[in-house]
Simulated assay, not measured.
Amino acid sequence: MTVKIPQITNEDAEGLIGFIKSTVESAGCKGVVVGLSGGVDSATVTKLCADAIGAENVLNVFMPSRVTPVEDYKTTSELSTLWGTEYKVVDVQPAVDALAAVLLSGRETPLERGNISARCRMIVLYNLAKKRNYLVVGTSNQSELMMGYFTKFGDGACDMTPMANLYKTEVRQLARIIGVPEPIIAKPPSAGLWEGQTDESEMGIRYEDLDGILYDLEQDRSDSQIAVDTGLPIEEIDRIRRQVKSMEHKRLPAIRPRDF
């Protein structure tokens, strides 16, 4: 693959730390809430926030469900202890079960129940943020946002989103710069919404390949040129382009009439 996505630098990390600090100050808030899952995205955001406003002003919330791997309990607790953030566990399974009993018909897909889980988790984060005058910090990256790989009003809901301009492969670079433990960086990405779920298997493409396509799309390159740059089939380029286009509604504010 010949796509050359810019390398992340110490200056980039410092810029994001400054962004978080100034955003919290401008909002007149006392701190931030970050949902901590044990993956690289939430770990990186947590460390950025701790560096920006002090770990004592960062509340990490781990929100397991029935399908959450046991090791995630240990991983999230250890990360919070490592960086000195406040740590809270809120089991979302009772809320998910209650909503599923009302909403699901018995023909639901794993994605449908997964979306309910994601939205229950965001209720938890905003409830805690409101009580403390904190901001909810999102953990989505640019790869997920462009692909629509998030639950609208679930993990896609937040007050600020520091990594929205970083592809997944860039997040890994940033994580190493700021000191996220290597086992977290190397962990297969997963939203943890159902047993065995991983990002790459669900999207049908590795992040290394996906990010090359997405970067070239943003450079307004043609499908044929992207195929040359990435070494991937042009059919795959077309699939990703169509996916990015179809998910635009998830990235934009609610559409409103233009003539009023």
Rank of each mutant, 00 (worst) to 15 (best):
S222T: 15
A95N: 08
Y215R: 09
M147N: 03
F260I: 13
L125Q: 04
K21T: 02
I5G: 05
T151C: 06
V40F: 02
V3R: 13
S105L: 13
R113M: 01
I185L: 10
E108D: 15
T76L: 08
E144F: 00
S190P: 00
F62K: 11
N141R: 09
I205Y: 02
R172G: 13
Q142N: 01
V45Q: 03
M63E: 09
A164M: 05
A175M: 05
H249I: 07
Y149V: 04
I177S: 03
A100F: 10
L193G: 02
K187H: 11
F62G: 00
I237H: 07
I240A: 08
I184H: 11
S246P: 00
V34R: 04
R251Y: 08
V89K: 13
Y215G: 11
G192M: 04
V58L: 06
P257A: 06
V40D: 00
I177V: 14
D223I: 08
T151A: 12
C29N: 10
L36G: 08
G35Y: 01
G179P: 09
K245H: 12
E248D: 09
D97P: 01
G15E: 02
F150N: 04
V96M: 08
I20L: 03
T161F: 03
I226Y: 07
E144V: 06
S42V: 05
Q93V: 07
Q93F: 03
A100Q: 11
D199W: 01
Q243G: 09
T23C: 00
I237V: 15
D199T: 10
E195N: 11
I17D: 06
D223T: 09
F150K: 02
P6Y: 05
L48E: 00
Y167L: 00
W194I: 07
S224L: 15
P189L: 08
L217N: 02
K4I: 09
P189K: 03
R132I: 11
D159I: 01
I123D: 13
Y134Q: 06
Q7R: 15
H249W: 15
T44Q: 00
H249G: 06
I177Y: 07
D41Y: 08
M1Y: 04
P69T: 03
T109Y: 12
A101D: 12
S37W: 00
E56D: 08
K88D: 13
L103Q: 14
A186F: 01
G231R: 14
L99A: 02
